[in-house]
Design a protein around this nucleic acid. Sequence first.
DNA 1: AAGAACACCAACCGCAGAAGA
DNA 2: GTCTTCTGCGGTTGGTGTTCT
Length: 347
Amino acid sequence: MGRAPCCDKANVKKGPWSPEEDDKLKSYIQEHGTGGNWITLPQKIGLKRCGKSCRLRWLNYLRPNIKHGGFTEEEDNIICSLYVTIGSRWSVIAGQLPGRTDNDIKNYWNTKLKKKLFGKHRKEQQLQARNKLLASANHESNGRRSENSSSNLISDQHILQPYCWPQNIHPSLTYTNQGSSFNDQDSIRKFLIKLGGRFSNEDDDYYPLHDGGVLSRQQVHEEQQANYISGCINSINNNQILQYFSQTQTNQYCVEGVAGQELVQGQGSFTETTTSSSNNNYYPQKLSGLEFIYGEEMDGTICGQSSNWGETDQSSSSMIYPSLVASNFQEEKPQECVFQELSTYPS
DNA sequence: AAGAACACCAACCGCAGAAGA
DNA sequence: GTCTTCTGCGGTTGGTGTTCT
């Protein structure tokens, strides 16, 4: 059985709101509140609008103390930092910026901030990578002939400089493994707490579960990494990986956000995965909006999983991504293989 | 001056989770 | 426990304005 529509779509007006409609909605809500039911609200005030549309209009535009445009540098920094940490959770990010709406921040990120931060940088990187590839190709054609050109291409690419996240996004957010870097979960948590303390109690070393239980930070850390890796390599189950964790040092190259996001990073460069919060699995998936870091032509292969992000031409991509190939795993020492790759990339 | 390309942003859509019957 | 309804969220679309050729 399909879900009933929230409104009669034939009888609702779409498109831009008129000043009259704005006035009706604003004055009603200011006088009576929403009444806890957006669906019936438009009928009450005689608006031929969908309840969802009214809600959106109110939240994004009519609500008092809404700021539009004119983002400050400090706000830019906060948005960037949070995006790196928690991904595209615009409502959470908006919660840290009073007067800003998630829609506004989302638009701002997609249209301006992304380009501001990476546009020029990326072009330079791509040009550099392309030149090196050309030089490498010339060298090959003049000298030795490769038996397997594709594998050599990949290894050559690994020599190239990968995309680097700008170091000046936020003073407390760096990608080195030294000093006050953002290289562990505590740092991220402290940073988020500093921004507003919405995420957790500073003294809290335990993560609440839906069933009322708790997980220690270490347990969460291990489970997330295990889920992540098992998501990469389907043939290895979580328990095997957790077992590995219990026997070895935690991999220091996995940096987790509070909500299961991970930045798998190396020295001054990183690759990114995000997780599906909806089903509590920590499987990598597309992190929308960061293709510019990887390169537009990236084929969506994350740790050996292809996720059909779009058409690609791998040979033209200047993105260096640490590929954890499943077949490697299925051989003799699977766990060592993945951790070796993670911990040594990029060399 | 005109058309194309690009940028911006308000609004829509569909999905998932929460709440209630 | 199941179904329905509502809310909130993030991704996407499409209209409009601006810049480029």
